[in-house]
Design a protein around this nucleic acid. Structure first.
Lengths: 250, 250
DNA sequence: CGCCTGTTTGACTGCTGTCAAGGAGCGTGG
DNA sequence: CCACGCTCCTTGACAGCAGTCAAACAGGCG
């Protein structure tokens, strides 16, 4: 078989699947009609696979695309000149990465895959062009970016005002609601990230995270064995977070 | 004089001034050509004045517009159900407020004026329409929102990793560079916000802010009398903010 | 002058970071 | 199959930065 033909077949398989994607109700297609979807499918590069630990991009990469997580999970972080890392977010299927980089030539953060992960790539140049033609898509982009700002403010709030217990409770609840959005169990899930990443994200020491987990466990609020977590008493967790009952941190 | 005529005169005075505005190199007009500017001027409501302590909007207000600060300064904060306040930002002339609210029906925060302040209002509905027609303006909007996300991540980083001294040094340097952008003295300025707001913004207690100010003063790094601040040793301040990163990689 | 708000200073407590060591899980190789 | 090394996680002891409480001070304004 001729290679050109084979490539063409692969391309058609990859394309025209946004409308069949189980995440279309979370991702960019959310706002689009059937015929508009096809335009989006024209510009997306679907199904890139990364293995655990690989980088989708890092701060030295010229900014070119946003990425939607299809399966797996991603950690974004800023690496300072001194080599310090600050985790800025965890991204699960249906969520969009790279919105923080549209103001700079290079990516503003480094995106590292926490497990075998599949992503869809949206070249921004084409995306910008398309948003001009599809008002709903433009509106959705503004919506997503605005949401990202809000999330980040919620995180700042968590970091500046809340105790270790409150921060971790908030993260667990955020993850819970995000699993629920994907029709998975909101009380029984596996953490995609290491304690170290949780600690970094929440501005705590690893040891503190570990201690809070065992404290919650002793209080019968959660059950944790390694990365497997079961939320036994969601209301208790919400009580811990007080004002933070909302999904807010990522 | 007939009232309709008078109103019309006022309207023409208010309009067609973006290109004469001293802040056009910071604000939305930044990306626009002469003829495009006129389109922007068509939708902007210029010169709204607020007195110290007044709200431009708050979290119970339906989201309708973004606002550019023309003179004065603004504090945005999130008020939780419990009545807690978290300051999310300080906005100076040329900066745009409300980008965090485009994902929700109501404003995502409360914008309070710190001094007598003049703002320009951009109704988002019209702004969205206009961005579809002016690619440069759309790009600029994405740019600004992205910048806002980055700023917020930087803040989160500051809150999660840095000491009180480092946070305050960083804030002083940020203010300094923002005054400089406006062709004002970068070393001699007046803080628009109270110690309380600084503390809240940086996740500290008022007392701590006060103590750090006096410590910096005793070290000869700054001179502060009330809200009047003079940066005596900018390099020392930069050193304070960087020291932590150095220590971190030991 | 007195009131109110904002700022400063001091004494003390405590949460959380740091240091140190040990345990658990897992893939590799003998 | 076990030993080994590696990474990740847990637990304990201790110290320090920053929060809390309390009080005095300063400045603006009627």
């Amino acid at each position: 078989m001729n290679q050109a033909i084979r490539l063409h077949q692969v391309a058609s398989q990859l394309r025209a699947t946004c409308n069949k994607c189980s995440l279309s109700n979370l991702c960019l297609p959310l706002a689009l009609e059937e015929n508009e979807l096809e335009r989006l499918e024209d510009i997306v590069l679907q199904g890139k696979i990364f293995n655990r630990g690989e980088h989708i991009f890092d701060q030295s990469t010229p900014f070119k695309s946003c990425f939607a997580v299809r399966s797996g999970s991603v950690k974004t972080s800023i690496i300072t000149e001194g080599g310090d890392e600050q985790v800025t977010g965890f991204f699960m299927p249906g969520e969009l990465i790279g919105l923080d980089s549209m103001a700079t030539d290079n990516y503003a953060c480094t995106a590292k895959v926490l497990e075998r992960t599949s992503v869809c790539e949206f070249p921004v140049e084409k995306l910008e062009q398309l948003t001009r033609k599809l008002p709903e898509l433009q509106h959705h982009m503004y919506h997503l970016m605005s949401q990202e700002i809000q999330n980040s403010h919620q995180l700042a709030m968590l970091l500046s005002k809340n105790t270790a217990e409150e921060r971790i409770a908030a993260l667990l609840l955020s993850l819970s609601s995000r699993f629920q959005r994907r029709r998975m169990s909101p009380t029984n899930f596996s953490l995609p990230m290491a304690r170290n990443d949780i600690a970094n994200f929440l501005g705590l020491a690893v040891e503190t995270v570990s201690r809070v987990f065992t404290r919650f466990q002793n209080q019968g609020i959660i059950k944790a064995r390694g990365r497997e977590v079961e939320l036994l008493d969601v209301e208790a967790l919400q009580l811990v977070t007080r004002d933070f009952a909302r999904q807010g941190c990522r």
